[in-house]
């Protein structure tokens, strides 16, 4: 069983938001909602100011608080360690939204929790997630973290990288190459 993960190269990502558009089209996401987004943070004090642009989505945490806070078992770990929502079980109670340190989830127009699925439907057909395959600067790498020969594992082996909010203790599987 693979363990899917993703790495985004902060040196080549230019914040164009093509990933956001590709995701919306591929997954037919509601008009006012996004599974994937580009955020900016500025920090520092003039003249030493830094602007960081991050393409964010569900971190597909291995220790996912959305899964263990779900009262009905709708949120679950599917194949490859990807966190999915079983719509037939979701009551729309929003415990998972409250539990997610990354604010990666929202309630869609059908009244159920929705989030990034790493485009598991595409991955099963041997394709890459929509955001990865569309990225014009090839800043995104998708693959199996447990396969040492995968481009993802090899890149993470040599490049300095970090996850978001590791202090939340959820073992995220989305990494940013610095």
């Amino acid at each position: 069983m693979p363990r899917y993960g993703m790495a985004i190269d902060l040196r080549t990502c230019m914040g164009c938001a093509a990933c956001v558009v590709a995701c919306k089209v591929e997954n037919r996401v509601d008009e006012d909602a996004f599974r994937c987004r580009v955020t900016q943070r500025s920090r520092g004090e003039f003249p030493n100011v830094q602007l960081e642009i991050l393409s964010e989505r569900c971190n597909q945490c291995s220790d996912a608080p959305c899964v263990w806070n779900c009262p009905t078992g709708a949120s679950h770990h599917a194949g490859g360690g990807v966190v999915l929502v079983d719509e037939s079980r979701c009551t729309g109670c929003k415990a998972c939204l409250a539990a997610c340190p990354y604010d990666a989830r929202f309630i869609n127009s059908r009244g159920v929790a929705e989030k990034c699925t790493f485009c598991l439907h595409r991955v099963k057909e041997g394709l890459e997630p929509a955001c990865v395959s569309t990225c014009p600067s090839r800043a995104m790498i998708f693959g199996d973290l447990d396969d040492p020969s995968s481009q993802l594992a090899r890149t993470l082996g040599v490049r300095r990288h970090r996850a978001l909010k590791p202090e939340a203790g959820t073992k995220p599987n989305l990494f940013y190459l610095e």
Partner: peptide, 26 residues
């Protein structure tokens, strides 16, 4: 009223998830 998917309210009572406080609450 808070439930966004009210038709599935019975799903609280087809599962007991010990790790989910809301399941305990139900």
């Amino acid at each position: 009223l808070d439930l966004e998917n009210k038709w599935n309210v019975w799903r609280f009572y087809t599962a007991f998830r010990w790790s989910a406080p809301m399941s305990w609450g139900a």
